[in-house]
Simulated assay, not measured.
Amino acid sequence: MIRVLLADDEAMIRTGVRALLATDAELDVVAEASDGRAAVDLALAHRPDVALLDIRMPRLDGLDAAEEILRDAPSVGVAMLTTFGEDEYIARALRVGALGFLLKSGDPRELLAGVHAVAAGGAYLSPSIAHRVIAHARHGFARGADAHAKVGGLTEREREVLGLLAAGLSNAQIARRLHLVEGTVKGHVSAILVRLGAANRVQAAIIAHEAGVSGGQHG
């Protein structure tokens, strides 16, 4: 069972999201918060698998809440669920280490897929904003960097792992796909992040897309 913390200051939104999550038998909303400070407190108390956070909330916004949660409870996977897909929000979410960025206006199936991906240690970005994330990468942390050159410095196995990571697979899923033990995959991912100069899996995935790497293939 995937344990979810849901935080949104609008009761109607919380009700709707909770109802959607309830359609998946593997998801269980263990706590709800109407502001960012309560979200942090509940995340530390319940240690959910996924904290699903709105960005604009009273007392503490969702991005500040995400930063505190990831600092004090790094095992919690954080996904932002928001109406706003502005570049500054996307950039900050990536900087603090959120693994998911989902739009409330997106396909409901995206929300379910995103929660599952983040719970498994993977990353998920709403397809409708993926191009904006890549645009941010060009002008943000990857500005002036040659993604092809960075990826070219990886071993063939690391490129395979990077491609699957970029597709949103978790370490366990990559291990099964490549017939490796999970610890080996974890080692490859750590090496990839260092070689690419990426702070987290989402940044590595963006660099992979910039370099044309997907599904374990190097373009």
Rank of each mutant, 00 (worst) to 15 (best):
A39C: 10
I90Y: 00
L63D: 00
F101A: 08
A73G: 02
R47T: 14
G77M: 03
L52N: 02
D72V: 12
A38Y: 07
A38G: 03
R47H: 13
A39H: 04
D72A: 14
P48L: 03
A45C: 00
G106T: 10
L99S: 15
L99N: 13
A73V: 09
R132W: 02
R92C: 00
L94C: 07
E67D: 14
I69L: 06
V40S: 14
A79N: 05
I134L: 15
L42W: 07
L81K: 06
R92W: 08
A33K: 04
H136L: 10
L52P: 02
E86A: 11
D49P: 01
V50K: 08
L70E: 11
S126Y: 00
A123T: 15
H139K: 15
R138V: 15
M57H: 11
A38N: 06
A73D: 08
E32F: 12
R47N: 14
H136R: 10
P58Y: 10
R138M: 14
A137W: 05
V50C: 00
G106L: 07
R47E: 14
H131Q: 13
E86D: 15
G62T: 07
F84Y: 15
E110H: 12
E32V: 09
L70R: 13
A79E: 00
A45E: 14
P127R: 05
G122D: 01
A123F: 05
I129C: 02
V40F: 08
A45L: 09
A135L: 13
V78A: 09
R71K: 15
G62D: 05
E68P: 02
I55K: 00
L42Y: 07
V115R: 00
G36W: 01
A117G: 09
D87S: 13
A113Q: 13
Y124V: 05
G114R: 03
L63V: 12
A135C: 08
H46P: 03
R109A: 12
V115E: 05
I55S: 00
